[in-house]
Nucleic acid binder design. Structure first.
Lengths: 247, 247
DNA sequence: AGGTCACTTTGATATTTTTCAAGCCGGTAC
DNA sequence: GTACCGGCTTGAAAAATATCAAAGTGACCT
């Protein structure tokens, strides 16, 4: 984290210890991952973790490094990317709040398989890996919470593997758009949450090919203008991109 | 599991309750996932789970079904596969003993994202999903065990995503062979653990393309004959297929 | 408004991968 | 032995994707 450290400002550093902890506790209660934990468990956690703010482009860690922290993204966006030896880069996941990440690496204490950097200025909580392991052992409910979080992430990855192996780039794009629609509701305009070049890397293709994929979707009931997408006929799009059954 | 149920024989059904439980306990102690659990925790688990034997081609479950069991593979091989709407099938993972699988689905109670069938006659333990959740809540050490298992699987999937996005089929094959070599040691002959058609599906390509991938590797120090592979120069192969740093 | 810059699109071309169609083993059955 | 059969390989053609080059678009700055 050498580089990241510098670009990071300690959050609320000027506040008193008490109010900082109180603030952190209040924030934890709002976080879905922690929502079901008893307050006394949260209280014990709250004063151990440092909320902070990180600027765009900050590198949190690089692939190959040993995990130091578990991260919780409170606001902003974080991109997890991986780089081949030849320098080609791909995006594994773009995280939006609220999301816990790098749990598997923190628990196994094995090198990060991805790098992480801030895509949009973010608020983060970090829990030192050793403390995390200790906390999980001491607080059984926390283990359950972490299991739930990891299960969710596992399934996200599994979907991605299926996507890559079974679908064309245009179909992957279709599934992605349908996923967005499900989140935002299906009124009309869906806004892409990030640049198309990032979307391309996330979908495992090139910007050029993504552009052509959008063109392909046009003949399946999808209109686009800039970073806005209108799905005229979700059924038709689904018929083309054959997303997974609900789950 | 309708189909699977029929093809399955209850294991050691004729033995007395006591010795069956004792046998199961002994088996659990040998399983890496459970090795570190205190004996009294194991004992409480042992009599709740049914070890059984399943014949080749038995279908354990199909993608889209709701999870009924957590599975533990004791011997044999199980293949997890996924199928696109057009019938194309790909292999997500081929499991070899000892391996816990379908933990994420069992915990989230969301539909299986893969199907599973027996590739080589197998011995399995199954834990009903509801019981699993209950056990995990009651036995904190078990939650830790499950977290460790899930972390491992998560990272396996993550590697697969990186593989698919960053490497050619020939490079993926190279990484796969290097992985086998690491397991079996690098004397000389490495035996492929399953048919090349399965290997092709596992690597996300076609049998034809896999064949050509083997041909490509020949010029990078890999000799093949049938299902045996000889890596003359692991360094050269690694230079070509650029596997992930250790972890 | 004009200019700049980064992102996006488009076109032409190369590469990779898939598909289809034979052929080629290597084992088993007879 | 010979005939078969499934799995594997090889070749040629088609499709998908990547690459390279150029032009278009829009946002932001002044």
């Amino acid at each position: 984290m050498q580089e990241g450290q510098n670009a990071v400002e300690a959050g609320a550093a000027s506040d008193s210890q008490r109010s900082e902890a109180g603030e952190a506790l209040a924030r934890l209660q709002d976080i879905a991952v922690f929502a079901e934990l008893p307050d006394e468990v949260l209280a014990r956690i709250a004063d151990k973790i440092a909320p902070y703010r990180a600027a765009e482009q900050t590198v949190l860690f690089r692939q190959g490094e040993l995990p130091e922290f578990l991260y919780i993204l409170l606001s902003g966006q974080v991109v997890l990317d991986a780089r081949a030896a030849d320098g080609v880069e791909t995006i594994i996941e773009i995280l939006t709040p609220v999301e816990v990440f790098q749990l598997a690496a923190s628990l196994t204490n094995a090198p990060y398989l991805t790098s992480a950097r801030i895509l949009k200025e973010a608020q983060l909580l970090t829990i030192p890996a050793a403390l995390l392991r200790q906390m999980i052992e001491a607080q059984p409910p926390l283990a359950l919470t972490m299991l739930a979080s990891m299960s969710r992430h596992y399934r996200m990855l599994l979907r991605q593997v299926k996507d890559l192996k079974l679908r064309s780039a245009a179909q992957r794009l279709g599934c992605f758009i349908l996923g967005l629609g499900r989140q935002q509701g299906f009124p009309q305009r869906i806004k892409l949450p990030f640049d198309k070049q990032f979307l391309a890397a996330r979908l495992g293709t090139t910007p050029e090919n993504l552009s052509r994929a959008f063109a392909t979707l046009r003949s399946h009931g999808v209109a686009t203008s800039g970073s806005h997408v209108v799905v005229n006929d979700p059924m038709r799009l689904a018929a083309f991109s054959v997303p997974d059954e609900a789950g």
